[in-house]
Design a protein around this nucleic acid. Structure first.
Lengths: 328, 328
DNA sequence: CTGAAAGCGCTAACAA
DNA sequence: TTGTTAGCGCTTTCAG
């Protein structure tokens, strides 16, 4: 690997001059520039980013924290963050936190030592205390921990209301909800949205809300029980799509026909919803856009040194597929 | 951020001594060590990895190249690589290449400038020429491009044979195959395995192999056509699980009952297979293990400076679920 | 317009 | 056992 000195020597200039031409800084005579450029070409020189980072204290690197990339909600998000990082010439580090505060802070430390320039995080567990220690831009996604952090999310509560309204509009008269874990604020907002819509219905009954931990297995289990205990339920709003497909599975196992016999709607709009049979109706979030927006925001903040505190809310949209159908 | 000099000053020693205590190198008096440790504590000092990297020419960072993390085969792989990177105190960079050779080499360059220490790649398009330029350990996964690179894979051909045998054992008498893209060598091995088993059957017919590009949509399409054109087909071996669920979808749309009327088997063992209805029978690869093994190998090679050339083959395993069932 | 020189934070000879 | 020193490869004042 050639160094800047090799180039300088070959072009018979100082390293400062070479540096100027690579960075397009300061004045440099056209002819000199030409010589330098040729030398660079000839030696196949590329500047060493580590040295650059050391000098600048910046690494052109951003990190994304997700609970678990294996959860199908996150790959699309990760893809978006990586894409814009790339476009803006940043590199991208992915960290699976398992929602474990210890892992989170370990990562945070490790990355600060590497001069990471910014973070986008999906976390329910970062403390205000931790946040104070972070001196680079950070933006929260999907869930918000504290108030003192920029974020981009969707309106979970009103999205949920729309989901339930859709179920009603399709003729459901006994609507249950499988909810996510309490520690995730979006799960509690979704539950709240559900309650907004059903609380005052005379049929409502607290046994219509079951807990599904945002994953397939527990949701399937919960739906099994629910459907057995409350056979009159004719509509289920699952707190996310993964749980929605769990419900579908349970329904199939129990011989309940979807959508004729039971309507199911999820939340998120992950692509697995399209692939199951029947395809899952859902309140879709613009997942890619959210990730892209967040990445864009961090990088912009990094480059402007503008530690602004911004909160953005993206729209959710009803996507009707096969798991709900208007009854005639 | 405190530097090593701050610590040295506070402990009234030289930076060299501090360095010795952080790295556990060389001799240092117990008492001095104590003073240094306290100073570190007091200043909340952590060594700067960038400076370290610059000096050592190593970054303790490995990268994983995948075509697209959005494809559900890859998150688990990524998770494995990240986990072991982590365990061994390396950081992890994820790169989506879209199977684009330009993106691949762009990443390769960018990462070499950052002193990335090793690569694990899933690629069909890296040239021997490119490979020669890489001076750090690299290991290929899932697909192999050239011969001159270490790899960990499964035996796709014999796995396919097992898949087809399973279909036969379950009573299928007209077995079709939806295959992956030609540029992926595993796809061609799987096709070959299929042919090994059916080529000499008197019912065999070249219209029983359709192309599905390893994704849901095209596989669904291909299955639709296949099932319409060759209604006698009673078993389909999909080249991967994603295509398997595409086939399931097509079958449902066409009113073909799985498994009674049609058996379907996939390949890979990704988790979506469990979540669809009927759940997809598959030849499962030990995806996590493969990723973990690969990561382990690169890191070991990095640390031993042993540029060994190794090829490992992991076992595949039949996982029977609901999409195939023995006919009585 | 160009070069000399200092220094980003750390490590590793080499002396002492 | 400890300190001095010379860099790793780059950028950026500051002179010239």
């Amino acid at each position: 690997m050639a160094t800047i000195r090799d180039v300088a020597k070959l072009a018979s200039v100082s390293t400062a001059t070479v540096s100027r031409v690579i960075n397009g800084n300061g004045y440099v005579n056209a002819e000199t520039k030409q010589r330098v450029t040729e030398a660079i070409e000839q030696l196949d020189y590329v500047p060493n980013d580590v040295a650059r980072s050391l000098f600048k204290g910046r690494s052109k690197m951003i990190a994304l924290f997700v609970p678990d990339i294996t959860n199908p909600f996150f790959p699309e998000l990760a893809r978006a963050v990586e894409d814009v990082a790339n476009q803006r010439d940043y590199s991208f580090v992915l960290c699976n936190t398992d929602n474990d505060p210890n892992k989170e802070s370990a990562y945070l430390n490790a990355l600060q030592q590497k001069s990471a320039d910014g973070f986008v995080i999906v976390s329910s567990s970062i403390s205000e205390e931790q946040l104070k220690k972070i001196t680079v831009p950070m933006i929260a996604l999907d869930r918000i921990t504290g108030r003192s952090i920029s974020s981009v999310t969707v309106n979970n509560r009103s999205g949920s209301r729309q989901a339930v309204q859709h179920l009603k509009s399709v003729g459901c008269t006994r609507i249950a909800h499988i909810c996510g874990p309490e520690h995730a604020d979006n799960a509690v907002f979704r539950l709240r949205g559900y309650l907004d819509e059903v609380m005052h219905e005379d049929w409502f009954n607290s046994s219509y809300v079951a807990s599904g931990a945002y994953n397939f297995d527990t949701a399937r289990e919960a739906a099994m029980n629910l459907l057995r205990d409350c056979p009159e339920v004719d509509g289920i709003f699952a707190g996310n799509d993964l749980m929605g497909v769990g419900v579908l599975h349970a329904a199939a196992a129990l011989g309940r026909k979807v959508p004729d016999d039971l309507s199911v709607i999820g939340f998120d709009g992950i692509s697995i919803g399209k692939k199951v049979t029947p395809a899952l109706t859902t309140m879709a979030q613009p997942i890619y856009d959210i990730g892209a927006r967040a990445a864009d925001m961090v990088i912009t903040q990094i480059e402007n040194e503008a530690p602004a505190m911004i909160t953005e809310e993206c729209p959710v949209q009803l996507v009707e597929r096969q798991s709900t159908r208007r009854k005639d």
